[in-house]
Design a protein around this nucleic acid. Structure first.
Lengths: 201, 201
DNA sequence: GCCTATTTATCACACCCGTGATAAAGTCCG
DNA sequence: CGGACTTTATCACGGGTGTGATAAATAGGC
């Protein structure tokens, strides 16, 4: 009972196609036929690896969450402990920028995650993963702020995560719009204020 | 050439139905048939007042923008000039809360506006109104901050508008989630920090 | 070389959608 | 009353969608 190709690789290929399609047309622009076309495959082939429409969406959502999780994991909290001044600010900014649309790769992830979170409002299927991602991000930010000696890390993290969401919207949608440089500057101004104001424990 | 009912009222009635539907099912859950059912009307009747699908969406979007514009217009900038300390903070918070989902009415508006802005990313039809709303809000916030003597009002406004977007997401979607009290507290903490840090011109 | 299981490729079905065209009902003016 | 116009109510068409079932092709293991 063979397999001439690696099923995992195939799945990742299809998920990648779904990614590109969500970025291009939004989460509702997705369809099995479009995904199949984008992946250069047949509808039946796609359906062989994913039981149906919902499964495919869920897999794409999982993938987005995993990518961001991996990004955040590259910044261990212990590396921040004891930092002060500009070094603390730089480290914190670098951490937060991992989930912001500062380049093409992160921009695509941000778009997919944003569409996912918004879709979770009306489609309960996405609720658990959406909640998990938000909780993970909040935890990472709060831990980082705590490691930097910020007072009330939970409250400050609430501000930062809200800012992340808003900056993502402003950058990702064409309603202004925020360039990457202004995005970075706005984030930096906020983090700087946060460290200066609540910096002393 | 009569009309036994007021066309404007009918239009508003239909737009209201579209509003409720967007809130309940998202902007893609909308359809002429559903709107007609929600409004207690017939598909043909709806299509008599709105040329088609896009017209209806655009009208709903306009309505959302107008409502928020009217809200913001209730807080003239001159009322803020010269305020300091807690009074300045209270006034600024009241202004910003007009566009945040702190009650059912504003929550519905926030949802519709959010869905609209996100949809504008892939559907150019919504771009102009989306851009206009974002610009209006940015202007109002920047003017208010300037009137309160905040240094670099544009930069500070960028932070506040980003925070507004993020807080809206966090409150409106079930991915946490932020209650109204925590929403208010997070906003207040940020505004307070902003006034304290950049308060002196 | 054959057999078995995986993978691919196509059907057809039912559903919902937007839209155009058209008929029916209702309401005011003269 | 009669005619003109607005409003309402249906119809059918073409297109796209998810899904189930099924046939064809492919690639090892024996």
């Amino acid at each position: 009972m063979p397999a001439r190709i690696d099923p995992g690789q195939r799945r990742r290929h299809v998920v990648g196609a779904a990614f590109r399609l969500v970025v291009a047309e939004g989460i509702d622009g997705l369809s099995l036929r479009k995904v199949a076309a984008e992946a250069g495959l047949n509808v039946g082939s796609v359906r062989h690896y994913f039981d149906g429409h919902e499964d495919l969406l869920a897999a794409a959502a999982e993938e987005a969450g995993d990518r961001m999780g991996r990004r955040l994991a590259r910044h261990p909290v212990d590396g921040l402990r004891g930092l002060t001044g500009a070094a603390a600010l730089d480290a914190l900014q670098a951490l937060v920028e991992e989930v912001l649309p500062v380049d093409t790769e992160r921009r695509e992830e941000a778009i997919v995650v944003l569409e996912l979170i918004l879709a979770a409002r009306t489609r309960p299927v996405f609720r658990p993963i959406s909640a998990r991602m938000a909780a993970d991000l909040g935890r990472v930010v709060a831990d980082a702020l705590a490691a930097l000696g910020v007072r009330d890390p939970e409250g400050a993290a609430a501000q930062v995560t809200a800012l992340i969401g808003g900056l993502t919207i402003d950058t990702v949608t064409p309603h202004g719009s925020l360039g990457v440089d202004r995005l970075r500057a706005t984030l930096r101004a906020h983090l700087s204020m946060l460290l200066a104001h609540h910096g002393d424990r």
